[in-house]
Amino acid sequence: MAGSTAPDTLQLPLPPAALRGKAVDERARLISGYLCRVLTGALDVPPAHRVSAERSLRAQGLNSLTALRLTRTLRLALRVDVPVDLLLTHDTVTELATALAARLEEPTRTALLEEPPRTALLGKEPSRTARPGPSPHLLG
C-alpha cells in the first residue's frame, strides 16, 4: 500500500534534461537522493527511519508489485524506460541510481518517452508493446 508520502508527487532535484548534462557520477548521486525519498513513501518506512542507499532493497521491503508501481513513477520523472527487473536485479539504491544514471545517456531510449509528465490516467497511454527496440529484459 502507498505510504504517507505519495512517491509520485516528489520532484527530481533537476529536470531530466539538466540531469543529463551532469557528469554521470553527479547524476547518480542526485538520482540516489531522489530514490531514497521516493522509496521512503513507497516502502512504508517507519517514522524516524530512512531508506538506506546501501542496504538491500528487498530487505527494506521492496517486492514485485511495489517495484512495478515504482517503474511508472521513475519513468514519468526521468523520462526513460524503466523495466521492472531493473529495480529487482539491482540490489541497492546506489546500484539502481547508477543504472538509471547510465540510462539517461541513451537518447534512443529517452526519445521515445515524450509523453506529458504525471498523467498516469487510465487508457491514455500507448501500449508498451508498441515500443520498438529490444525487449527490456535484454537491456539492463
Partner: peptide, 18 residues
Amino acid sequence: ERLPSPETTQMSLPALHP
C-alpha cells in the same frame, strides 16, 4: 500478493498487455 491499493493499480496498468 496483498490486495493492491488503487494507486498501485493505476500506476501499474501501463505495463500490462493492451
